[in-house]
Amino acid sequence: MDALLSQYIDAYYLHLMVLIGINIILVLGLNIITGVTGQLSMGHAGFMSIGAYTAAIMSVHLAFPFWASLLAGATAAAAFGFLLGLPTLRLEGDYLAMVTIGFAEIVRVFFLNFEPGGKAVGLSGIPEHTGFTLVWTMALLIIVLNAKLLNSRIGRSFYAIRENEIAAEAAGINTTRLKVLAFMIGASLAGLGGGLYAHYMTYIAPQDFGFMKSIELLNMVVLGGMGSIPGAILGTIVLTLAPEMLRIVAEYRLLFYGALLVLLMIFRPNGLLGDIRWYDFKKRWFNKGVKTWPS
């Protein structure tokens, strides 16, 4: 399938599409934590690197099959999501953001000192198992599962926690457990995305998962519209392609990218798609009478 595609689409575009697919998986994970449940996480790249390194080391040093390492990466990230989710019991808002930043930095420093991971030189020679077909099959699967989850009892409880934690608790939602659950799901998706990334790029290094990577993922969630799956997807597509398109302005690229972020937020303060869900799309396209767009 991948071989067939590469005959018709040139490698550069295929690469960008794979990148979008991987980013969608990562961003949907962060969307559950930050967008849906409202817990500001600025350390998503930390979970991603745990998944990437776990999967890569199992493939390279321990010769595990690809699927097993991918699964192990996601599990390891979820375990850390659980550990990091615990302090959220007590911390709120920006204190939580600080803990997630600190966590991601600690993970980065750990991998900078981690001999089997090649330290700053990075880990190369990871077998290439990921291609367009696999990434997009997984991405689509995760989009569907995500939509199902957010429409379920648990998903609605997540939204409730974001809107008003006290009210949610009063309504009988076990907020503590659900917040930890949100962290675990988000982290496992980050780990999965990290594993896919490692087996696609064939090379990972600690600097790939720095603070700016976390920020980039957060940008995608917020730009798309907090808590909205179509929004997260759109935000991912726009912000993955924007830096590539801006190559025409050469060294002014990041200047334009920064200005673009500001302008997009000024003109679409609630994100490109606001808080629109699949559900709203259905309503809009199948029932012309209902108007649900937020202003």
């Binding site: 040139d10 490698a11 550069y12 295929l14 690469h15 960008l16 990148l19 790029m201 090379y203 990972i204 290094a205 790939d208 830096p243 590539e244």
Partner: peptide, 9 residues
């Protein structure tokens, strides 16, 4: 890494 992959391709 992501940039150099895109550029090389």
């Amino acid at each position: 890494t992501t940039d150099i992959t895109a550029i090389a391709k």
